[in-house]
Computed example of a mutant assay.
Amino acid sequence: MNPTLHNIIAQNLKIPEGSLHFELVGGGSINETGRLTADGQNFFYKINNASKFPHLFQKEANALRYISSQKIIKAPGVLHCIETESEQVLILEWIKSGTKTHQFWKSFGSQLAALHSITNSHFGWEEQNYMGSIEQSNPWTEDWSSFFASQRLMPLAERCLQANLLTVKHHQKLEKVCDQLSAVFEPEPPALLHGDLWSGNFMCNDNEEPVLIDPAIYFGHRSIDLAMTTLFGGFDKAFYEAYHYYLPLPNNYQEQWKICNLYPLLIHLYLFGSSYRPQIEQTLSNFPV
């Protein structure tokens, strides 16, 4: 680690520099992540380039604080967000892992339903943020179909087309999907979303409580979060049953989820290559040009 950055972290924690210990751990594809031990206390830290992903951690800190402020579902406490000319650092509460019991999954489902019950007059968010390393534009928009088409699907479709990861025909089919969004998504109030809710972005603490991490927060359609839980698996049946009990799913939820997952699949296609294209094509096959 940069010695200057080491010193800045010590100053922010008000702890002698010599008492800090940094241990790399997994948990991030774009960040250096690890455990910081200081005076017998553990913290989680992330480090990244300050110019490559401007204010990445400040936006994450804002989202974590906002989720925590709802007092519905836990998120790690934000201790410090530090930016220098070259680097940015986020220091968070260390979460001790627990066991994902049946009760954990029921609590998680009911708490996510409660989080989605926090509404707003418009879709979007108060600032741009990130989903992974991809910037998300979040202008306040009156209807979901317009927001999802113009701020999520088509910008990624354009990127993938320019990178030769999608063909013109793929792009035309995605436009066809956007034309039919209002028929698939019945009007619902904007829901407060985690925004990137796959199995790597939540934890179970030592009290067997769900904890949300790495949010890509905005007010959107709740199917965004629910769809993402299915993309890579890892969520128990009790989670969905509890969610449905408190906030019933629409009859066509499976169709909604497939369309919602086009967004993260396009991101993965753009970042990681053509292995994600067959899943996109499978959904697009229902929308002939």
Score class of each variant (00 low, 15 high):
residue 247 L to P: 00
residue 266 L to D: 04
residue 262 L to E: 08
residue 216 A to Q: 11
residue 221 H to D: 02
residue 216 A to L: 07
residue 242 A to G: 09
residue 221 H to S: 03
residue 258 K to C: 12
residue 272 F to M: 05
residue 231 L to W: 06
residue 233 G to V: 10
residue 253 Y to Q: 14
residue 267 I to T: 13
residue 219 F to I: 01
residue 223 S to W: 05
residue 230 T to I: 00
residue 228 M to F: 14
residue 242 A to W: 07
residue 260 C to G: 01
residue 224 I to Q: 15
residue 253 Y to K: 15
residue 253 Y to P: 09
residue 249 L to T: 14
residue 216 A to D: 04
residue 274 S to L: 12
residue 276 Y to N: 05
residue 222 R to I: 02
residue 236 D to G: 03
residue 265 L to S: 05
residue 237 K to V: 12
residue 264 P to W: 04
residue 224 I to A: 15
residue 245 Y to H: 13
residue 254 Q to S: 01
residue 229 T to L: 14
residue 228 M to K: 03
residue 254 Q to L: 07
residue 224 I to R: 14
residue 246 Y to I: 03
residue 227 A to L: 08
residue 222 R to G: 01
residue 243 Y to Q: 07
residue 250 P to R: 11
residue 262 L to N: 05
residue 256 Q to G: 03
residue 261 N to S: 06
residue 232 F to A: 12
residue 278 P to E: 02
residue 263 Y to F: 15
residue 220 G to M: 10
residue 273 G to K: 04
residue 235 F to P: 11
residue 236 D to E: 14
residue 261 N to Q: 05
residue 271 L to G: 02
residue 270 Y to I: 01
residue 219 F to D: 01
residue 265 L to Y: 00
residue 265 L to G: 00
residue 219 F to W: 05
residue 228 M to S: 00
residue 257 W to A: 12
residue 258 K to L: 13
residue 276 Y to R: 06
residue 217 I to L: 15
residue 246 Y to W: 09
residue 255 E to G: 03
residue 239 F to A: 07
residue 227 A to D: 04
residue 253 Y to N: 12
residue 266 L to A: 06
residue 223 S to H: 13
residue 263 Y to V: 08
residue 249 L to I: 13
residue 265 L to I: 10
residue 267 I to C: 09
residue 219 F to M: 00
residue 249 L to G: 10
residue 261 N to P: 11
residue 226 L to G: 04
residue 223 S to Y: 12
residue 247 L to N: 14
residue 263 Y to H: 15
residue 265 L to N: 04
residue 217 I to S: 13
residue 244 H to T: 14
residue 223 S to E: 15
residue 252 N to H: 13
residue 248 P to Y: 09
residue 274 S to E: 13
residue 279 Q to P: 00
residue 237 K to Y: 11
residue 222 R to F: 06
residue 274 S to R: 13
residue 229 T to F: 04
residue 230 T to Y: 00
residue 264 P to E: 09
residue 251 N to V: 10
residue 259 I to G: 12
residue 252 N to W: 09
residue 223 S to M: 12
residue 273 G to M: 02
residue 247 L to T: 03
residue 240 Y to M: 04
residue 243 Y to R: 09
residue 229 T to H: 05
residue 241 E to A: 10
residue 243 Y to I: 14
residue 232 F to D: 07
residue 242 A to Q: 07
residue 248 P to G: 11
residue 243 Y to P: 07
residue 248 P to I: 08
residue 237 K to A: 13
residue 226 L to N: 07
residue 246 Y to A: 12
residue 225 D to M: 02
residue 229 T to G: 02
residue 231 L to P: 08
residue 269 L to I: 12
residue 232 F to V: 10
residue 272 F to N: 10
residue 224 I to C: 15
residue 246 Y to R: 11
residue 260 C to D: 04
residue 225 D to G: 02
residue 237 K to F: 09
residue 262 L to D: 03
residue 218 Y to N: 05
residue 257 W to D: 01
residue 216 A to Y: 03
residue 238 A to C: 00
residue 217 I to V: 14
residue 232 F to M: 08
residue 256 Q to N: 00
residue 270 Y to T: 06
residue 268 H to Q: 09
residue 279 Q to V: 00
residue 225 D to R: 01
residue 274 S to G: 04
residue 279 Q to D: 06
residue 267 I to S: 11
residue 217 I to K: 01
residue 249 L to R: 14
residue 252 N to V: 06
residue 235 F to Q: 04
residue 256 Q to I: 00
residue 220 G to K: 03
residue 252 N to M: 12
residue 253 Y to A: 14
residue 273 G to F: 09
residue 252 N to T: 12
residue 234 G to A: 11
residue 219 F to V: 00
residue 270 Y to E: 13
residue 229 T to V: 08
residue 251 N to K: 10
